[in-house]
Amino acid sequence: MDIPAAANVLGTLGAVCWSIQLIPQIMVNYRRHHAVGLQPSMMMLWAWAGVPLGVYNIVEEFNIALRIQPQILTLLSLVTWCQCFYYQRKWTVTKSLAVVFHIVLLMGGIQAALIVGLKIVKDKHPEVEWPMIVMAVLSAALLAAGVLRHYWDIWVHRTVRGISFLFVGIDALGDVFSLVSIFFQPKYNVLGMVIYGTELVLWLGVFACGGYYNFCPWVRDKWFSSETSRDTVQETATESSSPESNGRVALHELSSSTSVFRTASASAEGGNDDDVGIRLRSRRSNTDQHDNTAVP
């Protein structure tokens, strides 16, 4: 089949995005040495989604990039799945590799058998379409189920946690390129567009949840913190200039942990509110003693 250059280029871009999509998530897990919030069931569902998706793309003779794309998805998903069990359930490296090796053999055998069998069916009985429909629906359902598993975590904890937004953005971009690539195929393929379109819509929903639960509260906290800081500065200037403040500790001399929002300086000093109160009472006691000794 003569595949247009646009389909090849866009399919390659989609495959590149899917090749690196999970790398940011893998690096985040490695740096923080845990995978809290990341759903291992999501990664395993994606790994299995690569099996029917690979069968569908190969049998339907999509461009070479889209044929390789599901294999990369399966590999990176299994690596991330291993991280979840290695960091959270304390699996050893040997146990993780042994389990993944057997899963890869099983997936590879199933995919190879389905490709050979469905190619024979397509060549000898082109009017039989339901096996390919099953592959398309199964891959779309597994991809969607993987993302929906994270929706449950968002609903329970009311935040988007444990997942890299960079990974989400790259994955969504890969869906966009793959979707447009199928549009330029010689034969218009509705099921292929449904597969990638379903996941794209769900990722956009995760972005929306991140904006609502993570970004908006962060902006409100920053705004309220700046307003509180300005009010504190004004109160400090007023109290330090008043006669009643003589012989007392001014607010600007206190640790930042006494303000509404704890800042990095408080953590660096290793102090807390109780420590600040003790230091304040000590300094006031010393001041009173000095005043008493100064009076004849």
Score class of each variant (00 low, 15 high):
A98R: 12
A98W: 00
V99F: 12
F101C: 14
H102M: 14
H102P: 00
H102A: 12
H102G: 08
I103H: 06
L105Y: 00
L106E: 05
L106K: 09
M107E: 10
G108C: 05
G109E: 10
I110F: 13
Q111A: 04
A112L: 11
A112R: 07
A113R: 00
V116I: 12
V116D: 00
L118K: 02
L118R: 03
K119C: 10
I120R: 11
K122F: 04
D123E: 15
D123A: 15
K124N: 13
H125Y: 12
E127F: 09
V128Q: 13
E129H: 07
W130H: 15
P131H: 08
M132Q: 15
V134N: 08
M135E: 03
L138D: 02
L138I: 07
S139K: 02
A141C: 13
A141Y: 11
L143W: 06
L143D: 05
A144C: 12
A144H: 02
A145W: 01
G146W: 03
G146N: 03
G146S: 01
V147R: 05
V147F: 04
Y151G: 05
W152N: 10
I154S: 03
I154Q: 06
V156C: 14
H157G: 05
T159N: 08
R161Y: 07
R161Q: 12
I163W: 12
I163T: 09
I163D: 07
V168S: 05
V168I: 15
G169S: 10
I170G: 03
I170V: 13
D171A: 07
A172R: 01
A172V: 09
L173G: 04
G174K: 05
G174A: 11
F177D: 01
S178T: 13
S178A: 10
S178K: 03
S178M: 06
L179I: 11
